[in-house]
């Protein structure tokens, strides 16, 4: 095959672009990890270079001073409960919308679709008013309820599409055997949707794990806050000590990255699914 000059130019540009882009992605992450391991003296002398002097105590300092234990626990509780509520509420709704005869099905579907375009900022002030009126600020349950309501719509649409792909014969056979709707759903349909559940869990869980807007508004006590807001406040009080700040950054990011490395496919499909939501 003829390989003229444009082929080689293309080849070189391609390698150049990928190399520069890779460095641009990796280098900031590497520097972050490196700084998190440096003793302060080494960091001030030589912030960006390599060093053999490693101080792992930065991580202990970050854990203790950043009060990570309590915030990690809060984050895990909020994330886990949000996932559970969203799956338990969205899955049956999606099932009913796709497989059962109901009046106004289209209308209900579009009503949930509307939820995708309401920005969280547009409900912030009324929810704040409500939580003040009912004394619900500084409660983990408030965060869980808000996240669940906010993130519910997309999984409903996802389950509706997913259940449509399940053959109707399965349902009719179960019906003939005398299953009522609830046990049909519990025994047969729900176990069939493992992959959709995983996708919804990742799509849903990513938000409370990383979000910082809602805890910023609905919590004021440190003992009720999640990691994202904890980190933000932490850098406010230790704003010059980058070694400890970055140790906390690494500690916070590690769980999600490890989970991702173990189940890349599920993660990518879960995160990408949310892109329709914008």
């Amino acid at each position: 095959m003829r390989r003229d000059i444009s082929y080689w130019i293309y080849k070189i540009l391609k390698i150049l672009f990928v190399s520069i882009f890779s460095i641009a992605i990796i280098y900031p992450l590497l520097v972050t990890i490196m700084i998190s391991l440096k003793p302060v003296e080494v960091f001030t002398m030589n912030p960006l270079g390599f060093t053999t002097q490693i101080r792992l105590e930065n991580y202990i300092d970050a854990w203790v001073k950043g009060k990570i234990s309590i915030m990690l626990l809060n984050t895990i509780i909020v994330t886990f409960m949000t996932i559970v509520i969203v799956i338990l509420f969205a899955s049956p709704a999606g099932f009913a919308l796709s497989k059962l005869k109901i009046k106004g099905e289209k209308l209900i579907y579009n009503y949930f679709l509307l939820g995708l375009i309401i920005p969280i900022q547009a409900v912030m002030i009324p929810l704040m008013k409500l939580s003040n009126m009912t004394n619900m600020t500084n409660k983990l349950s408030t965060l869980i309820i808000i996240y669940s309501g906010w993130l519910l719509c997309f999984p409903i649409l996802l389950y509706t599409g997913f259940y449509k792909s399940i053959p109707t014969e399965v349902i009719e056979a179960a019906r003939i055997d005398g299953c009522n709707v609830f046990s049909l759903f519990r025994r047969i349909i729900f176990p069939m949707t493992k992959s959709a559940n995983l996708m919804v869990a990742i799509f849903t869980g990513m938000v409370p794990w990383r979000d910082f807007f809602i805890p910023l508004i609905f919590t004021t006590e440190n003992t009720k806050r999640t990691l994202a807001i904890g980190l933000f406040n932490f850098q406010g009080s230790y704003f010059n000590d980058w070694t400890i700040i970055f140790a906390m950054v690494v500690l916070m990011s590690l769980p999600l990255i490890l989970l991702y490395l173990f189940s890349q496919k599920a993660f990518i499909s879960g995160v990408m699914a949310g892109s329709i939501k914008g």
Partner: peptide
């Protein structure tokens, strides 16, 4: 089946 999601 829809009601809980609808209310929330």
């Amino acid at each position: 089946l829809i009601l809980p999601a609808f209310i929330l």
